[in-house]
Design a protein around this nucleic acid. Structure first.
Lengths: 212, 212
DNA sequence: ATAAGTTTGTGAAGAATTTCACAAGCCTCC
DNA sequence: GGAGGCTTGTGAAATTCTTCACAAACTTAT
């Protein structure tokens, strides 16, 4: 694939993901082409932004016509690394972990949940979706053994760093955390944090300081 | 309160929220002061960034000493609008909505869940946390009646825009959406979207294009 | 074949955000 | 009370990200 020469901004990657979602929709509808303007309106951005984002990876459109919907869909899947099937473990068999397991888009998009872990003896051994909840003590070993790519952390903030240290040592390379805390990891590990409190407080701030 | 003259960047607000979380922790431990350097290390940012962020709102520290932990905590709560109790409704009584309802930090931080809504007749009328699931048809009316501030949208993407239109018309001012779609709202409405697929795809991209 | 009408791809300009660097201020110790 | 050692607050510089604007290229219509 065309190697990105420049570092790609996180905001660009997020938009690529959004373009992909809407292109899949258009593809399902049988639409042949889409202009940067159409994509921009669907995604709530600007046509120039769409073209710039895509231009980092190559030249996919035809002038006067737009982008080929199906071709660009496939191309974006490659760029985002979604041709590949990723191995995922979920750490924490609570409500959030449970909601995640039920999330359809998960497997649909090539993220295979190969294990669920918890340290609560009450939960260990219980069937849980396709898997069985396993003892957290086995986590590091399993991550190494099964070459797990991504760990989803859905446990309390206080326990998060310890677990992260273990699985980083075991060779994991990417982490999606729902723990409301900042995680310390070596620079080559990719981390995303979803922090609901932060989002709510962002809204609270907007409501408080709006309109001036 | 000191009015922010300049528009405050979203990234700044997110960091304020993080500073607050750690300051609360330090306050609980009885620590009197914290330097920008200490806060930066806790939050994974830089001292200069901490000082710049805070300086938008005033001058809270003492040179040579740092910031007063308790005072700054209170000040940040005000700035973020957390002195106020916000009225929240949750739309969608599925797994995500359920995980949200159980989320402790919710009420703890002044977000009062005053209603849960679903359009599925099977769910309507069921007790659910402190509340009872109500018919979605009552949503717009209730939002207007009870002066609800924030709606959390935890329903499928296809239904999201329609619901958003209704509650915007009913006078809601802020929306936190878990629907994987972009929402169209008037400019004075604050919207945050949490999109798990997008986060996972960001990780997939990082894993695919790392190290060059 | 030509003209008219679109739409891409992209340097360059502009805006926003982060980092730098240092004067000014405060504390502590002697 | 003066000296030394920290730490803040902040303009300015650097960097990053977005928007602009237009030549080039393609389609369609006649």
């Amino acid at each position: 694939m065309t190697l990105p020469i420049k570092r790609i901004a996180e905001s660009t990657v997020r938009r690529l993901s959004m373009y992909l979602r809407y292109l899949e929709g258009l593809d399902g509808l049988g639409q042949q082409t889409a202009s940067s303007d159409e994509l921009a309106q669907l995604c709530g951005t600007t046509p120039a932004q769409v073209r710039k984002d895509l231009s980092f990876f190559g030249s996919f459109g035809k002038r006067g016509l737009g982008y080929p919907v199906h071709g660009l869909t496939e191309r974006l899947r490659e760029i985002l690394g979604l041709s590949h099937a990723w191995q995922v473990v979920i750490v924490g068999a609570g409500k959030i972990g449970s909601a995640l397991a039920e999330y359809r888009g998960f497997r649909q998009r090539g993220f295979q949940v190969v294990g669920v872990y918890d340290k609560n003896p009450e939960k260990i051994g219980r069937p849980w979706g396709d898997a069985t909840v396993r003892d957290m003590l086995a986590l590091a070993h399993d991550v190494k053994e099964k070459h797990v790519d991504i760990a989803v952390i859905a446990i309390p903030a206080d326990d998060a760093q310890e677990v992260v240290d273990q699985i980083v040592a075991a060779g994991i390379r990417a982490i999606l955390s729902f723990a409301p805390t900042s995680l310390h990891v070596p620079p080559h590990i990719a981390v995303k944090t979803v922090n609901m409190a932060m989002e709510l407080e962002g809204l609270s701030f907007a409501l408080t300081n709006r309109g001036e």
